[in-house]
Amino acid sequence: MSAGESESALVRRLHELLEPVVLDHGLDLAELQFRREAPGWVLRLIIDADDGVSIDDCARVSREVSHLLEVEDPIEQAFSLEVSSPGLNRPLKRERDYFRCRGKMAKIVCREKIDGQNVVIGRLGELENGDIVVETETGPVRVPLAQVSRARLLVEW
């Protein structure tokens, strides 16, 4: 098994191990990353909820995850644990992210042109048959989720 394959196996194992902890707190594990960064290895959990995530939510999950990782010991090298919310300009990766963020402004970059454009900016509407309806300045645009290269909420002031 190559280093990349073993790392993805570790990430899958960590996800299986840690997602129930997050769910037990009524939260959603939006993303799990384990990667080498400038200060060393970092295990990053991005948690989310329909009504937002508080600092107390992050602290509770962090304490419980830390304890579980000490007991299970699935990671061989030293690492730092970070637990946070996705932030105001959060990426949209899963169908439930689009559902949760209905009514908010987003920028969606598509793999292929949709209505003559690769970038769709507008207010997220309903999910319909694998498409997200986006209300743009020129009217609604249906974007197939399968065509999304990347998407992010836009901060509205």
Rank of each mutant, 00 (worst) to 15 (best):
R96E: 12
R96G: 03
R96A: 06
D97N: 15
F99D: 14
F99Y: 12
R100W: 09
R100A: 09
R100T: 07
C101G: 00
C101H: 13
C101A: 10
G103P: 05
G103C: 05
G103N: 06
K104A: 15
K104W: 10
K104C: 14
K104H: 13
K104P: 10
M105R: 13
M105P: 06
M105Y: 06
M105I: 04
A106S: 11
K107V: 13
I108G: 03
V109L: 12
C110M: 07
R111S: 05
R111F: 06
E112C: 05
E112G: 07
K113I: 01
K113Q: 11
I114S: 02
D115E: 15
D115N: 14
D115F: 06
Q117W: 01
Q117E: 09
N118D: 09
N118T: 14
V120N: 00
I121G: 00
I121R: 14
G122E: 02
L124V: 13
G125T: 13
E126L: 12
E126V: 15
L127C: 05
L127G: 03
L127M: 10
L127I: 11
E128A: 13
N129A: 13
D131N: 14
D131H: 12
D131G: 00
V134Y: 00
V134M: 00
E135Y: 10
T136P: 03
T136H: 05
E137Y: 02
E137I: 00
E137G: 04
G139D: 01
G139A: 01
P140E: 14
P140K: 11
V141F: 00
R142P: 02
R142W: 06
V143F: 02
V143Q: 03
L145Q: 06
L145P: 06
Q147M: 02
V148S: 04
S149Y: 07
R150P: 01
R150M: 06
R150C: 01
A151C: 03
A151S: 12
L153I: 13
L153G: 10
L153S: 09
L153F: 09
L154D: 11
L154C: 07
